[in-house]
Amino acid sequence: MEERLQKILAKAGIASRRGSEQLIRDGRITVNGRPITELGFKADPAKDTITFDGKPLTFEHKVYVLLNKPAGYVTTLADPQGRPIVSDLLQDFPERLFPVGRLDLDTEGALLMTNDGELGNTILHPRYEVKKTYEAWVAGFPSAKELGRLERGIEIDGVRTRPAQIRVLKRDKNQSLVEVIIHEGKKRQVRKMFQAIDHRVIHLKRTAYGKLRLGSLARGKYRILTINDLKKIFSQKIPFTIKNILA
């Protein structure tokens, strides 16, 4: 059956659907020997020969991993500056795993890694509003009024953030530990939110995707996720496209 090329690449674990679109634009995909740069191009993986950088696609066993990313690692599969990359921490896997979303270089915590581009794309899609929970140590003691601004939404880089859930967990000397729950993924969003109310983020850690929590997983370590783990990521509405995975 014919499908859009980026969907086929995502199913093969090459990259997320968005990442696959960039590979197509870059001319790294061929179908029956012809380079394809058209995003709407359709192919049938059962009949057509599809290659990525000259290598035929293979459809791997799907792997789902929760990694406790340390600070100092970039959330990419390669880095021209030679910095450590998150895949360095997952060398036990023969599959090519990619991160679902990103964490900044100086942010640590929960990071999903998989070769299932379809699931990764679904988790990132705004329609499903997958909640991400962070714990942020911030300078000073934000007032209830200031935190209320963040909860209602605040303008960052000309765009208003969606409503957030905020609560103070602890106050210590001249800083506060604040829990932040959002379902967006704008670049450095949590840091920019607190910067907007003049309380700089000192340390940031993501602790959960939905109800899938990092728990006691040690920094730099990972665990393989079960189907029940994956179900915890989503709230009430499980996407139709992955119901077969979560059945």
Rank of each mutant, 00 (worst) to 15 (best):
E2V: 12
E3W: 06
R4V: 10
I8L: 08
A15R: 02
S16V: 07
S16H: 09
R17Y: 09
G19N: 06
Q22F: 14
L23R: 10
D26R: 12
R28D: 08
V31C: 07
P35C: 08
A43D: 07
D44Y: 05
I50N: 02
F52T: 09
F52P: 03
D53E: 12
G54L: 08
T58E: 11
E60V: 00
N68K: 01
K69F: 02
K69A: 00
G72D: 13
V74K: 03
Q81M: 12
R83N: 05
P84S: 13
P84M: 11
D88L: 05
D88H: 15
D88Y: 08
L89S: 02
D92A: 14
F93P: 00
E95R: 00
F98D: 00
G101H: 00
D106M: 12
T107I: 06
E108C: 03
E108F: 00
G117N: 06
I123Y: 02
L124S: 04
P126S: 11
T133D: 00
T133G: 03
T133N: 01
E135R: 14
A139V: 10
G140K: 00
E146K: 14
P163F: 12
I166D: 03
K173R: 15
L177F: 06
I181M: 11
E184Q: 08
G185P: 09
F194R: 05
F194L: 07
Q195Y: 12
Q195D: 12
I197A: 06
H199Y: 06
R200Q: 12
I202L: 15
K205M: 10
G220K: 04
G220F: 05
I227A: 13
K231P: 02
K231R: 15
K231M: 03
S235Y: 07
K237F: 07
I242V: 15
I242R: 05
K243Q: 14
